[in-house]
């Protein structure tokens, strides 16, 4: 598959996945880009699906490494929530910022593997692909994913997360 086609197909999802996991725009861009550099460096070959799993696996490992280091120098990453020069009013922005904080906190209370599975499923991964990307057994993905989803929603409820369509 042509490199630029793969980039166009996978980069946005990979960036979104990394950003949801790290909450840091710079880190997520670095991670997504580094995954593609490694792909090019090592001349990895395969179908688009296989390469997508490979890229997510590399990004997941890079993020795990980043998080281990970040634990030692924990920083506030609730930044760049919304562009400041446009969009909704300040009260709407504050409300949105609060919802983001709640979702971020709820996500942070899951274990790392649960977070990764939850977010990969959101990117349309099958259970087998998630297993390959995270290193868990395929047969365990359903159980881990169900547990992660239940816990995530429980954490949201506890924090009073509200959205028009639910609760």
């Amino acid at each position: 598959m042509h490199f630029s086609t793969l980039f166009a197909e996978v980069y946005p999802a990979l960036l979104r996945y990394a950003h949801r996991l790290t909450a840091d725009p710079d880190v997520s861009e670095d991670v997504a880009q580094e995954a593609f550099v490694r792909l090019a460096e090592r001349n990895v070959e395969g179908s688009e699906q296989e390469l997508r799993v490979w890229l997510f696996r590399v990004a997941t490992n890079l993020i795990r490494d980043y998080e281990r280091k970040a634990k030692r120098r924990r920083r506030l990453v609730l930044v760049n929530l919304l562009p400041s020069d446009q969009g909704p009013s300040s009260s709407e922005r504050a409300e949105r910022a609060e919802r983001i904080r709640i979702v971020r906190d709820a996500l942070a209370n899951l274990d790392a593997r649960g977070r990764e599975l939850l977010l990969m499923r959101e990117e349309g991964f099958s259970h087998a692909e998630m297993a390959r990307a995270t290193g868990v057994a395929t047969g365990s993905v359903g159980t881990l994913l169900a547990r992660a989803r239940r816990k995530f929603v429980g954490e949201l409820r506890e924090r009073g997360y509200r959205h028009d369509s639910f609760f």
Binding site: H19, R149, F152, V153, H163
Partner: peptide, 25 residues
């Protein structure tokens, strides 16, 4: 319950997507 949790999770996670969609061409 699981079905509902999945839909809530999907919706809640989109709250985090504050980066502009990357340009890929």
């Amino acid at each position: 319950q699981l079905d509902s949790a999945g839909r809530i999770a999907t919706l809640a996670l989109t709250e985090l997507d504050t980066l502009p969609e990357p340009v890929v061409s």
